[in-house]
Design a protein around this nucleic acid. Sequence first.
DNA 1: ATCGAGTTTCCGTATTATGGATAATAACTT
DNA 2: AAGTTATTATCCATAATACGGAAACTCGAT
Lengths: 259, 259
Amino acid sequence: MSSKDTPAIRQSKGGVQSVERAFGLLECIANSAGSATLSHIAADVNLPLPTIHRLLNTLVNLGVVRQLPDRGYALGPGLVRLGDIAGSQLGAIARPYLRDLVAELGESANVATMDGDMVVYVDQVASERQMRMFTEVGRRAHMHATGVGKAILAGLDPEQVRHIAATAGMPTPTEHSVGTIGELEAELERIRERGYAIDEQEQELGVRCFAMAIPDAPAPLAISVSGPVSRVDQAFADRAIPLLRSAAAQISSDMRGGV
Amino acid sequence: MSSKDTPAIRQSKGGVQSVERAFGLLECIANSAGSATLSHIAADVNLPLPTIHRLLNTLVNLGVVRQLPDRGYALGPGLVRLGDIAGSQLGAIARPYLRDLVAELGESANVATMDGDMVVYVDQVASERQMRMFTEVGRRAHMHATGVGKAILAGLDPEQVRHIAATAGMPTPTEHSVGTIGELEAELERIRERGYAIDEQEQELGVRCFAMAIPDAPAPLAISVSGPVSRVDQAFADRAIPLLRSAAAQISSDMRGGV
DNA sequence: ATCGAGTTTCCGTATTATGGATAATAACTT
DNA sequence: AAGTTATTATCCATAATACGGAAACTCGAT
């Protein structure tokens, strides 16, 4: 499951070839979890060895890739920094509104984006409560098993949803998780009707979560509030949903407004 | 403070120009917090507009940069993913040992690397205790004010240390923090003698931390255990130091061993 | 000590990125 | 609302740049 995952390297017209190739290599290393040797990479992306070697050298000099003592290549710390900044920038616009949500509702609020076929949490404002959700920023999770993920999926084409479900798979972290594409599609329809997604202990037992997509965002984005089922109940939802709705609207307009 | 931070773009011989330039642009966007407009970027990196535009286009197509509705450019979600994977890969080798440390000592353990002139936490295993350190993965901190940072600094050339202190500055988060280069150098000398670093409430009041650098790591790396001063005392240190030492040695050999 | 898979360097070639000039678009001004 | 400027996007001839075949080298295995 490695020679087909990276379908060579997409070359879009008007793009700079070497840059596209360079990121193809990064993708390739990212997919082959851990290190990847030169020839291993050459097998995946379809390029002559010297070319790959030269590109990798450049990336190593840039600190984006690090070369292991056994000559293998791995993603380097430079990417940690860039990724961190990228995430915080995405989250930065949303943060003040998340803070309001937390202040108002007393539960943790999150922003997540879709990357590839997974959800990535880009920012979180944790509640002050003792027992609270512990969703690390940067964590990745399956779309169908999270509130934010389902909220995002509900805004995509059905075929795109199928494709994501197919490539990422549909594991069921708990017995409440959605397990089949049929169920998922029905669930997404419900989400579209009511305007928000519910994660009913689907990601973790005892945790309920309300999520909503940010309309017209530059990247697929959703926000959520989550907490233990004991506190996050119907009464909570009645207070939370309008707040989520207005937060989503404001974030959306902030993002369109630039800065 | 923006036209001098990015000293054009470093071009190392044997490197692929366009790739180096592309990452120069990413750096530039990263530095100009939030969005950066085309001409703003052109002012920082010293390149003709069409060239920048073409490179940015490529990066946008790759999902690494996103273009805002006001035509500004910002780092995109693709980087979040790569950075996340890069971080977890760096941390992955260390994680099992961190787990052991936490199991044995009952306090949170961290791995951090140096990136630029800052420390970045790449992984953490949190203790099960109620009151625990809340160091998010991906967080950046000043070298001189953290245990891991000082442990790493202790292994660098004095001039490099000076340079880092000069460029990053030396803020003092608490009244215990090291505030001058003189103090720092003395402290680093002590660290070299005893073989580990102590963060004595220098980052946050009430928090003590023992840290040790990973020798011969592919990137500067250090591990630490930290917790409230009430629990993390001399008796704790007596248990912790040998464990840290052996963990560091094992991680080091694992990293040299490849995979 | 010999071999061979995998990695790195070399260098002539032409493919590829380049950037000056120009057009299109947005922002400001009167 | 029309004119003006600043900013961004597109063309395309040029040559500089990245390319990749071939050959040297390194390291682990036999």
